[in-house]
Deep mutational scan, measured.
Amino acid sequence: MQNSHSGVNQLGGVFVNGRPLPDSTRQKIVELAHSGARPCDISRILQVSNGCVSKILGRYYETGSIRPRAIGGSKPRVATPEVVSKIAQYKRECPSIFAWEIRDRLLSEGVCTNDNIPSVSSINRVLRNLASEKQQMGADGMYDKLRMLNGQTGSWGTRPGWYPGTSVPGQPTQDGCQQQEGGGENTNSISSNGEDSDEAQMRLQLKRKLQRNRTSFTQEQIEALEKEFERTHYPDVFARERLAAKIDLPEARIQVWFSNRRAKWRREEKLRNQRRQASNTPSHIPISSSFSTSVYQPIPQPTTPVSSFTSGSMLGRTDTALTNTYSALPPMPSFTMANNLPMQPPVPSQTSSYSCMLPTSPSVNGRSYDTYTPPHMQTHMNSQPMGTSGTTSTGLISPGVSVPVQVPGSEPDMSQYWPRLQ
């Protein structure tokens, strides 16, 4: 039975679970980093996980050691009161100082060594604690504590007292930064006198190289990059290397530039699409467009005044059976039934097929058609009795279509119309 579990990581490298990497692998990681390889490249070359490479390099940059820390136990506290007071002093002298600059000053002034120097995250935590204590304490208590930490007896009751030896409130920041720059020169002199001055200088240079600022491109470089971006948004590694040799930039910087440029292009394309949609959409909808001609068919113009009344309900007709019959029939052209047409008796099958359309009241044959006459024609229609054979009435077949029909004066039988409509 094995005491430890061995495995293979996602890159194909072998590791022992819970145990640190061998010293030979750690040394190779540092050597590759000094030669300029990126952590992701080191991870692929040595088949070590990216997190492990970053952790080893980060500890090497901070402490200069590649040895693993002790497994188990607690780390001794490195942010001692003396170190905290120095950090507060540096922050007062130059409020814009960075944590890694404070760390360098602690090393250069001999406050800490490589073994007990606090990390950048520890210094940031100390600065946050100082800021929170400043908010919790009152103004007087804060000034007393700062005077105690600074070891001075001057008056701290006013704002300019934060910067000793100065009279203009805006000047101390520059003086403090100048003092810090002077301390940086002392850093070089002190570290050069040490035993491991060369190694420390190499480590600091490598650290500065990794902690780079934003790349500033010249106009020629920007023009070359934009020209390549117009050709393709995704250049391959050969195109990037050719462009890197042409404009004297690292291939990694060119790759990052193209990634950022593609993101910018997507944002601009989104804005262009929004403007295009806004320009195509009308600002207001016309009133006429809300009524579609496919839904509402136009009603033909009436030929006679009587045809303006298109349904039985508008003429005072309360018989719903006839109203439904007229509205359900398709529109037909106007025609006239003459008196000489043969009077065919209704076929029983045809009569039964339209039995649902006729009223059940037996008085329908005896009703006159003056009910369908509009009010303004009552006088004219009353002067001509319906009993004469020459009287013409208008029957409504569908809305908007008038059918003048000659009705025999002897017997106005409704059943004569249905064979004609089939």
Rank of each mutant, 00 (worst) to 15 (best):
I29E: 02
P22I: 05
R125P: 00
R147I: 09
R77S: 08
I87F: 15
A131K: 04
L127K: 04
G51A: 04
G13D: 03
L107Y: 07
S119K: 02
S49K: 03
L57T: 00
V8W: 04
A99T: 06
A79S: 05
G64E: 04
V78K: 05
L130C: 15
S24V: 12
Y60P: 01
I56Q: 01
I102T: 05
D41F: 08
E31N: 13
N9M: 01
R67T: 12
P118V: 07
R67A: 05
K91N: 04
V14P: 14
I29Y: 02
V126N: 07
S43A: 09
V126C: 14
P76R: 05
P22N: 05
L107K: 05
K55L: 01
N17L: 00
Y61P: 00
K145T: 10
Y90N: 08
N124E: 03
S132R: 08
P76Q: 02
A99D: 01
L57M: 15
L107I: 11
L57S: 00
S74W: 04
V53C: 06
E62I: 13
R103C: 05
N124S: 05
R77G: 02
K134I: 11
A131E: 15
K145W: 07
N3G: 09
D23P: 07
T80M: 05
P39I: 12
L130M: 09
A70I: 14
I123R: 04
K86D: 07
G72W: 02
L106Y: 04
R105H: 08
V8H: 08
V84I: 12
G72I: 02
S132M: 14
L107D: 10
R69D: 05
C112D: 15
I87P: 01
R147Y: 14
S24F: 15
K145F: 08
M148R: 10
I71M: 07
E31V: 14
R59H: 13
Y60H: 04
N17K: 00
G12C: 04
G13I: 01
K75T: 07
Q136F: 08
S65E: 13
L106N: 02
P76A: 11
P39F: 13
R26M: 01
D104V: 13
G72A: 01
K55N: 04
S119Y: 00
T63H: 05
I42Y: 02
Q136M: 11
N124L: 04
S85A: 11
A131L: 11
A139V: 12
V16H: 07
L149G: 12
R69M: 09
L11S: 03
N114S: 11
S4C: 13
G58D: 14
Q27M: 08
S132C: 10
R44Q: 09
N17T: 05
T63E: 15
K91F: 02
R105Q: 13
N3H: 09
S6Y: 05
R69I: 04
A37M: 08
S35K: 15
S122C: 06
D23L: 06
G18H: 00
C52F: 03
L149D: 06
R59V: 12
G73A: 00
V111F: 08
G51T: 06
P81L: 14
R147N: 11
N129I: 06
D140A: 10
I102L: 10
S85Q: 10
V30T: 08
E62Q: 08
L149S: 06
T113F: 10
Q47A: 15
T25N: 05
S122R: 02
I97F: 07
S6W: 04
E133M: 13
S108H: 11
R77Q: 04
I71W: 04
I97N: 07
E101R: 13
P22Y: 04
L107Q: 06
W100C: 07
I56G: 00
G141C: 14
L106C: 15
R38Y: 06
P22M: 07
I71C: 05
Q10I: 09
M148S: 10
